Amino acid sequence: MSLISERLYEAWSKMLDKLESWLDILVINLPNIFIALVVFIIVLVTSKYLSKLILRLLQRSNLQRSMKSLISKLVSVLVILIGLFLILGILNLSKTLNTILAGAGVAGLAVGLALQGALANTYSGIILSYVKYVKFGDWIESNGFEGEVIDIDLRTVTVKQADNNLVYIPNKLVIENPIKNFSSTSQSKVILECGVDYSSDLEFVKELTVSTLHEAFEEVKKKEDVIFLYEGFGDSSINFKVLFQINSTSALEVAKAKTEAMIVLKKAFDGNDINIPFPIRTLDFPEGFNILSKENNNKE
């Protein structure tokens, strides 16, 4: 028991000596810790202020809003990193700094392998922030989703659809797949398909359709602006396609214009006894076939 007691006493003494040495180091470095804390606060405030200042200065440039935001964030991160190096120097942790820098290469390789997808999205986000064919406010279609671009960050492109739902598309998919930008021109084309009965006067249908759309939409300055094309003979109708343009790049406005065109054409067709037929099927019985006598025989 005496041997165990001696060892416990010796361990306890070593622990107290260690704690005393740590306390001495803490007291000696207390001014440095206070200075490092002050520097840390100053760095945080400075990074926030510089980020806002850079963003305000970039508002005068022709860069996209996403690129301006990216630059301001990078400046903020750079200021914080510089402040971190200063704090490590104040705390006499230069050896720790060297160790961090030495291990950064190995850690960077491991992180790069683990975050390939995230890094690809980040790189794609930088590209999207720089290019001009996709910018804030554009109405685009990408990866099967259509809507207004309301945000481009380092991970996703945020698209607001016509029903106000938000779709977050990874930047990598936007870069690698085709993009349809409805806002690249000042006008959008409205396409409407329909069909009329085989007994209809095709020349009259064409003239009525063109005149109706010319009167219904201010953008259609003259009848020649409406393109009317018969597409073929369908099972139940003679099908046609009509095209005209409106002064909007929003897909929602295109959908509204198409709805309005359907309403005015239906009224015009009804007022002139032009039938838009349902799908029908014609039965052709052999000559002399009497369906009533056939039914009577079955009853007997």
Rank of each mutant, 00 (worst) to 15 (best):
D24P: 09
S51N: 11
V111P: 01
K180M: 06
Q116T: 12
A11Y: 10
D273Q: 14
A251L: 14
L109S: 06
E215V: 10
Q245R: 05
S250H: 01
A110V: 08
S5R: 07
V27L: 15
L63T: 04
I54M: 08
R281Y: 15
E146C: 09
K221H: 12
I4Q: 06
V254A: 02
R281L: 14
P178G: 08
W139K: 10
T212W: 05
A36W: 04
Y123I: 13
F285C: 06
E207D: 13
L8K: 07
S248I: 08
S47R: 06
A216C: 06
Y168V: 15
L37T: 01
L109Y: 07
K267W: 02
L37R: 00
A216F: 05
D235S: 02
A114P: 05
V167D: 14
T209L: 02
I4P: 04
G137P: 03
K160M: 12
T249P: 07
I191H: 02
I291Q: 12
L115A: 12
I263S: 12
R7A: 01
I152N: 08
D235Q: 02
L88G: 00
S211H: 12
S293K: 14
K206F: 05
E203P: 06
L213E: 07
I227W: 02
L243C: 01
V220W: 00
K241S: 07
S293I: 15
L84T: 03
F182K: 08
K52E: 12
A11V: 03
G103F: 13
